[in-house]
Computed example of a mutant assay.
Amino acid sequence: MLAIGFTLLLGAYLFGPGLIARLILGFAVPRKTLVQSRSEEVTRSIVQAVVPFGIALVWARATGALQQSGHLTDLQTVFSGIYSTSFFDAHRQDFFSSLHAFCQMNLCLLLRLYLLVVLFALTLNLAIRNYSQLRARLPLGWQKALLATLVLPRVSEWHVLLSEMLLPAGDFLDADVLTKSSVLYQGRIQDKMLGADGSLQSITLAKPRRFLRDEFEKAKEADPNVDREAYWRSIAGNLFVLMASDVINLNLKYIHRNPIDFRSSQEERIVLRRLLERLSNDETDRDQTDRQAD
């Protein structure tokens, strides 16, 4: 029973902080999932737990909470009783008395350890959410490098590329997507879906357009200076979903947001053309009516 208890206690120190940190980070952004061996996972957990444990230990000793919970002699009695059966039989009452103090000392340390982990994870969440603004405000290159080292390795690469993390304030993200069927699509990145391992599942484009490649190639043979923009056609609907399994090439463009977007869609051009024709016909009918009245 004592062996099970100490195993759980060891797991609370080594694996608990990392588990809580990953759980909290998962609420902010899709995390980057690392495929590691068992030894690499243990080593990583130990490294992640050392720093907050050291801070928690100094905190507990500085406030006197650790000394009030127990003393070094309590630790010696407990570990001696676990190691030696003869010592346990000879000092059974002292062992259980020290075991109570031992539990109080660990509770004192674990509360501070997990509080530090939660605060660190929440701070990292805020840094991830406001990464572009923080990076723009940092004046020195090493500060930006430190921020990137702390934030980017913990986030899925696809979230970094397809979100506003790397975008300057006021910019948006456009994409040219080439599919396996050799169809080229274009649109503004509206959303994406990521798998549990951080892999890309789908891309959602706003204001989607499709490029008429065959017609463009034929026109280009006749006229090398043909306008490429004339062979883009808007796709009906506001959002267009592309599955990542169909994508073979993805070109991202960071575009500065203008106060007014002067690029009109195909539907807008048709509506404007019809409106101009109607206004022109109304003006012609009005002139004819005025001449007849004269």
Rank of each mutant, 00 (worst) to 15 (best):
T289Q: 15
L115N: 08
L242G: 01
L146V: 13
F211W: 02
M193P: 01
R291S: 04
V58Y: 13
L166E: 03
R291M: 06
A121Y: 00
I128H: 05
M193V: 14
D214I: 14
S280E: 13
S39E: 11
N106S: 07
I248M: 09
E217Q: 14
Y185C: 04
Q186E: 12
L194Y: 03
D176N: 12
V117D: 00
D197R: 13
N106P: 00
L23Y: 12
K144R: 15
F211Q: 05
E229F: 03
P208H: 03
Y13A: 04
R31L: 07
I20H: 06
D294C: 02
D246G: 07
L75I: 15
L138F: 12
G16L: 11
L126Y: 14
E267H: 07
A65D: 12
F262E: 11
S84C: 01
R257M: 10
P259I: 04
D227N: 11
G141E: 11
Q292T: 05
D94V: 01
V118Q: 04
D176A: 04
A219N: 00
S182Y: 05
R44F: 08
R61W: 10
G5P: 08
L109E: 04
Y13C: 07
R137C: 08
R92D: 11
L10Y: 13
S202V: 07
D285E: 11
T289V: 02
F87Q: 03
S245L: 07
Q266E: 13
I20Q: 06
D176G: 04
I255T: 15
S86F: 07
I128M: 15
Q292I: 08
L116W: 12
D285W: 02
V118F: 09
A60F: 00
A28L: 02
